[in-house]
């Protein structure tokens, strides 16, 4: 199987700041890969290096086997990137923007494909509107369309659903999933962990420029056995020596990890003995958010 993206010991320093501290990963062709991490973890930096927008201080990156520095023209043809920032050129209409982007790749008779992309992203009604006149969600769709004009086998989306309404998000994911089914490799970053859990085959978690977890979504969920107990209490502190691992806690809202249903009785008794009143209670199977929080706390 071909490797779509391969990063080897990638480092990036901005002055004294080490934005990436030796990142290695490889994404197989056809994979749906998630890159997760808190703000400032280095996700955008890594994507910028893959895309050639930034140069690594050390290490190597290849896209479909093409080195992003020495063979940059081939690497860039293989790659479509949806940038995190909502950028656009205010001089042009949607269609002009897409035609120009095609032309940058040397594609001058690309209208059939452009029309198809416009159709699938539901941009038809605004195709001849100036970019300035578009809403944020519409601009985001144009960004996605721009990344696709040259039919790249590898597509990287940097927080494509940030600030996008639910309906558009659903439509966008449907479209991306279809691209993936058609054989495109997808790499995405997102803050919506339920999206990542649903979509991604494999996930890398990044923290402070390092990979702290890298596994299939199924395995990551599997490392986290037990149940999650969500509570709202009448107080801001939990009793000492509680028989459960605290996953998160903020202003009276807590998430606790239980080994099994039997653990519930013990925790409830401890809370009662401490005089705490329970305002709300929920018991859930583990999800990616729990895994994420645990991984982030451990490192």
């Amino acid at each position: 199987m071909t490797i779509a993206i391969e990063a080897l010991n990638v480092e990036k320093r901005y002055g004294a700041l080490q934005a990436l501290a030796g990142v290695s990963l490889s994404v197989a062709e056809g994979e749906f890969f998630g890159l997760l991490g808190p703000n400032g973890a280095g996700k955008t930096t890594l994507i910028s290096i893959i895309a050639g927008l930034a140069r690594a201080s050390a290490g190597e990156v290849r896209v479909m086997g093409a080195d992003v520095v020495t063979d940059y023209r081939r690497a860039r043809r293989m790659l479509g990137v949806v940038p995190q920032e909502l950028v656009f050129d205010p001089f042009f209409t949607v269609r002009e923007t897409l035609r120009i982007q095609s032309g940058y790749y040397g594609l001058r008779d690309n209208d059939a494909w452009i029309d198809e992309v416009i159709h699938h992203l539901d941009l038809g009604a605004r195709a001849d509107a100036n970019m300035r006149a578009l809403s944020g969600g519409m601009k985001r769709r144009v960004l996605v369309a721009q990344a696709l004009v040259h039919r790249p086998p590898v597509i990287v989306l940097d927080e494509p659903t940030a600030g996008v309404d639910v309906e558009l998000r659903r439509g966008l994911w449907q479209f991306i999933r279809r691209l993936n089914r058609d054989g495109h490799t997808i790499v995405l970053t997102t803050h919506y962990l339920e999206e990542a859990e649903e979509l991604c085959d494999r996930i890398a978690m990044l923290k402070a420029g390092r990979i702290v977890a890298l596994d299939s979504t199924r395995n990551l969920l599997g490392t986290f056995s037990g149940l999650v107990l969500r509570l709202r209490l009448d107080r801001e502190t939990l009793p000492e020596g509680l028989a459960a691992e605290v996953l998160s806690g903020d202003a009276g809202h807590y998430a606790l990890r239980l080994h099994d249903h039997g653990g519930l009785e013990l925790v409830l008794r401890q809370l009662r003995e401490a005089g705490a009143t329970i305002r709300e209670l929920e018991l859930e199977p583990p999800d990616l958010e729990e895994v994420f929080l645990r991984v982030m706390r451990k490192h």
Partner: peptide, 17 residues
């Protein structure tokens, strides 16, 4: 303008020598 508005990225992403 392209630098400040950020749309320079579209040229930087493309295989333009």
């Amino acid at each position: 303008q392209s630098k400040i508005t950020g749309n320079l990225v579209f040229m930087l992403l493309a295989p333009i020598s």
